[in-house]
Design a protein around this nucleic acid. Structure first.
Lengths: 162, 162
DNA sequence: ACTTTTGTTCATTTTTAATTGAACAAACTG
DNA sequence: CAGTTTGTTCAATTAAAAATGAACAAAAGT
């Protein structure tokens, strides 16, 4: 890193880097968000590039992703042509996005595959397939639970009570 | 793949490969579990190697991980020295393990880092740090929620009601 | 009109993670 | 006890993901 980062910034960056990695997002996104999170003023892309010592490409891509997540908000600065951003406190957006975009489609895809499997067992070997069928049925229940889990998590994650 | 797999096996393997990838586990683990899931008889390591066309190393490592997760159960076959395994239906184990081993430690680590950050702000800039401090406090609430979320998910995932 | 600033895109490079297979160890076999 | 079978470990290879930076485009300034 070219420009020295404060202790606070370093901590925040590390914090969010490890956070986004849980969700399988690239490190650079954590760095960007981490720096913005503790920055009182909004930041522009070239500031990120310099302070985090990342490439233009990573910065541009990272900002695009964070914008897409709603995790950062564009904010213009008087007399400056650049686009500035500040962190949106709604970390919930990132988490919600994760569950909606990542888990949701997989659940659906999984359910399709699952019915196909049940069909196969029923057609090909309805006799000896008992054991397998019960396993597949068990899996099916999992999907039902998964479907319940998502809105539940989203609610927990969104409501800022207590 | 050397030995031809049935349609059912292929579907199951694909299903679990994409499942374990959500959790960030290697593909080979999904393959192994997927094949076992639809296998009426328990399977030994060399059968996995042959049917899935994976290496000894992957098979051994994969089995070790699945054993560690409690996702497969050793079961001996009369008159055969090899170690056989069958899939444990408790998929919950895998999910629980994920939340306990992966999320838990990160939460703790995150909390430590968070208090450090709050300390830094209080020491270095108790005046102008108001904004940042409120952000950090917001984050703290997130940890509280995360802590609540884990047992909640584990309960949902474990109880086989409905 | 042309020069500069700001930002995006994407082919290449770098980094990271998973897989392989040879070497080894332990347990059985005859 | 020599040979075989079964399984683990780990250095080297391969494959997948992320980061880089040059080329390009769009808007602004002069």
């Amino acid at each position: 890193m070219v420009t020295r980062l404060t202790e606070l910034e370093k901590e925040s960056i590390d914090y969010f880097v490890s956070f986004v990695q849980i969700l399988g997002l690239p490190k650079s996104i954590g760095q960007i968000y981490g720096l913005m999170f503790v920055s009182p003023e909004p930041l522009a892309m070239d500031q990120l590039i310099e302070r985090l010592d990342i490439s233009k490409g990573s910065a541009s891509q990272g900002l695009a992703t964070l914008r897409g997540l709603g995790a950062i908000v564009p904010s213009s600065v008087e007399g400056d042509r650049r686009e500035f951003y500040h962190a949106d406190l709604q970390v919930s957006r990132i988490v919600s996005h994760f569950f909606e975009e990542r888990l949701g489609p997989r659940l659906e895809n999984g359910e399709a595959r699952l019915s196909r499997m049940i069909e196969i067992v029923n057609q090909d070997s309805p006799e000896e397939g008992d054991k397998i069928l019960s396993r597949l049925t068990a899996l099916n229940k999992w999907h039902a639970r998964g479907r319940k889990l998502i809105p539940l998590i989203k609610r927990l994650v969104k409501t800022p009570r207590n």
